[in-house]
Design a binder for these strands. Structure first.
Length: 424
RNA sequence: GGAGAGUUGUCCGAGUGGUUGAAGGAGCACGAUUGGAAAUCGUGUGUGCGUUGAUAGCGUACCGAGGGUUCGAAUCCCUCACUCUCCGCCA
């Protein structure tokens, strides 16, 4: 969340930001609440001061054997007033907190203002989309005809937006996970993690999924548990309520998890194939950095994610998200979009964001520059490194042959136990 | 799931109603000592909020979380979470 004082002192700037993000939140009432909070606080603290000093006095009087009935009665009234004010204060602070939890992060100055994804500027491209001398098939058709993806049985067993991988399909998904984890651990310096798939409410608030996006999550019934929508949640909250030491920064983590998303509101979109599933695999990259380093760290994180596609030799482009398309917690986001021949367009396969101190403030993650200095909020970054199901889809479409077989990218062959091609 | 024990500052660890933000120790920082270091000695060493020009001072809150009793709670009561031990079950 944003700093309360920042919102108070920059109300119009925050309003403009909300408008640029197409966020309808109204800040009416915020200033009054903020002012009210300080008024109550000053009054209640004054009374507490009185109570504290008088209570000490009462202790001394009792020791001296004096009667304290009158003064105790007086303090009882002060106490009643205090608890009345405290209740009022709690109410005001709850409302303020609710405001703050619903205000998204401030975009960096160089983020273009725009309505939606049509206004995301392209930053760079890598690789030439292959020229097919036959009509390329969609990955779901390839997967079914090769008998490596089974959407029908997944629908029977679970429902829409689930998939069975089988045989070399399952092997390919697993090969991608292993390849990505090895790449980030060995080449890019990320510490490998495996995290819980179920997290509590505080974690979901810490990274910004709650309270606003509850309908996008799967909640475990009769509990306060949620299925993780991304490894960003457990991995960023790994350091919740901690003060990190400066010499450990930046901290890099890579974490594979399955991801669970309700996909409410995307009915009818990407109904076929691996693109939009209730459960999918993802390798996530997470960084905790000093504030002054986070922008460079964002660039190197995107590069690490791009590296996956470069090594797999699949064409992609990088776009910079405009204000209207950026996620809630992000100050700046690059999306990597992979070339999908059957759709004849680039599709998102990774999203890398610098959340600056926004999540750190929610999750209370700080660091200390040295023993004498006050703790400061870290910056948190997260990025897909990369979405595994979409990678498999991209491999199937980009590496397909006219006879319906699919070649395995060279870098994955060792992870496939030497298999170089998937055929019928 | 059953029974019991715990949760205090960076760490260890005292503290069962009053001057305790919290004994003592360790660590750390600064200073003294030293040719330099170790050892030793001295001083200091939490966070949030409010006030403020101020990372000064003052006030306030915080001893797992939330509520209650009391003039006053780390200390008493209630609820919850987590940790540990034993039993049961189990990949």
């Amino acid at each position: 969340m944003l700093d309360m004082k920042f919102v108070r002192d920059n109300l119009e700037t925050v309003r403009t930001m909300l408008k640029n993000r197409n966020n309808p939140l109204s800040l009416d009432g915020f200033s009054d609440l903020e002012k009210k909070r300080r008024e109550i606080l000053s009054e209640t603290e004054q009374l507490k001061n009185q109570r504290n000093s008088t209570s000490k006095k009462i202790g001394a009087m009792k020791k001296a054997g004096e009667n304290t009935d009158a003064i105790s009665a007086e303090m009882r009234e002060v106490g009643a007033k205090i608890s009345e004010l405290d209740n009022e204060l709690r109410d005001v602070e709850e409302k303020l907190r609710d405001f703050l939890l619903h205000i998204p992060n401030m975009p960096k100055e160089d983020v273009p203002i725009g309505k939606d994804d049509s206004q995301n500027p392209e930053v760079r491209r890598h690789g030439e989309p292959r020229k097919f001398d036959f009509a390329p098939k969609a990955h779901w058709d390839l997967g079914e005809s090769l008998n490596i993806l089974d959407f029908d049985r997944a629908a029977k067993v679970s429902g829409a937006r689930f998939t069975f991988y089988r045989g070399l399909g399952a092997r390919l998904e697993r090969a991608c996970i292993n390849f990505m984890m090895d790449l980030h651990a060995n080449k890019h310096g990320y510490t490998e993690m495996l995290a819980p798939y179920i997290v509590n409410r505080d974690s979901m608030i810490g990274t910004g999924q709650l309270p606003k996006f509850a309908e996008d999550m799967f909640k475990v019934e009769n509990s306060d548990f949620y299925l993780v929508p991304t490894a960003e949640v457990p991995t960023t909250n790994y350091h919740r309520d901690e003060i990190l030491s400066a010499e450990n920064l930046p901290e890099y983590y890579s974490c594979y998890t399955a991801c669970f998303r309700a996909e409410a509101g995307s009915a009818g979109r990407d109904t076929r194939g691996l693109i939009r599933q209730h459960q999918f695999n993802k390798v996530e990259l997470i960084k905790f950095t000093k504030p002054e380093d986070s922008w460079n760290e964002l660039e190197s994180m995107v590069d690490a994610a791009e590296d996956v596609l470069r090594i797999l030799e699949i064409p992609y482009r990088v776009v910079l998200l405009c204000t209207g398309d950026m996620s809630f917690t992000s100050a700046k986001t690059y999306d990597i979009e992979v070339w999908m021949p059957a759709q004849d367009k680039y599709r998102e396969i990774s999203s890398c964001s610098n959340c600056t101190d926004y999540q750190a403030r929610r999750a209370n993650i700080k660091f200390r520059r040295d023993t004498k200095s006050k703790p400061e909020f870290v910056h948190t970054l997260n990025g897909s490194g990369i979405a595994v199901g979409r990678t498999v889809a991209a491999i199937l479409e980009n590496y397909q042959q006219e006879d319906g077989s699919v070649l395995i990218p060279k870098a994955l062959v060792p992870y496939m136990g030497g298999v170089e091609k998937i055929c019928k």
